[in-house]
């Protein structure tokens, strides 16, 4: 069971995730249309590139956009959540070992205590984000079942992984559910709003080009995000 889950099933999950995201990128870029979107995407490459980069960076860096500055508590919560979500699976020792054993690739890792801390932070901030969804009327009205499901989907591998690492009672069970939920997460990325891990960059680049090329980027000092 373990061998299957960390072998063919993992492969499948990676392939579906990668191919799915690639399809999303191609479909998105292919569907951009200078006349419908009213942005001369290709005619002003430099202004477009500058606009895209500014747009992405201002929102990628905490407090660089005005809306990040206006709500510091949310901003910190949000960035910590994402930090844990990205760093832990990528640089966990346990994951690096799999890579090493499977393909002989030496992979950088973060110390265990940091991984533990980031995991707990991700779980706590994730919970806070879930509570916010129902506590604030302006968010509650937008919330759908899938929002909750996606959040649970994203947090499940962390919770199960953490329990497994801590050698909680039922270790085998936690380890297997960790792998299964992790693979479900990978597979669902391209088909759900989790695709924002890549689409964020694309939509931000698009609006950045819009402002950079058309809405004043070539005349003024560029939009102050």
């Amino acid at each position: 069971m373990y061998d299957f889950l960390t072998g063919p099933a993992l492969w499948l999950a990676f392939i579906v995730c990668g191919a799915g995201l690639l399809t999303r990128i191609v479909w998105y870029v292919y569907g951009l249309n200078w006349q419908l979107d009213r942005v001369a995407y290709t005619r002003h490459p430099l202004a477009g590139l500058k606009g895209a980069l500014r747009s992405i960076l201002h929102w990628l860096i905490p407090f660089a956009a005005r809306n990040w500055r206006l709500r510091p508590l949310f901003t910190v919560t949000f960035f910590l959540f994402h930090l844990g979500l990205i760093l832990v699976p990528l640089f966990l020792e346990g994951h690096a070992v799999l890579l090493e054993q499977g393909w002989g690739i030496a992979w950088p890792t973060i110390p265990m205590w940091l991984a533990d801390a980031l995991t707990l932070i991700a779980l706590a901030t994730g919970l806070a984000i879930l509570v916010r969804r129902f506590a604030l009327p302006e968010v509650r009205i937008l919330t759908t079942g899938s929002d909750v499901l996606i959040l649970i989907l994203a947090m499940a591998p962390f919770l199960t992984g953490f329990l497994a690492v801590q050698q909680a009672p039922g270790y085998q069970f936690w380890l297997l559910t960790h792998i299964v939920t992790g693979e479900i997460l990978l597979i669902s990325i391209p088909f759900t709003r989790l695709s924002h891990m890549i689409m964020f960059f694309l939509t931000r680049a698009q609006i950045g080009m819009d402002f950079g090329i058309k809405r004043g980027g070539m005349k003024g000092r560029g939009i102050a995000w």
Binding site: Y28, G31, L32, N33, D37, R193, S195, T203
Partner: peptide, 10 residues
């Protein structure tokens, strides 16, 4: 097209 549909979906 994709810009609008992605906005609505994402």
């Amino acid at each position: 097209k994709s810009r609008m549909r992605t906005w609505l979906e994402i």
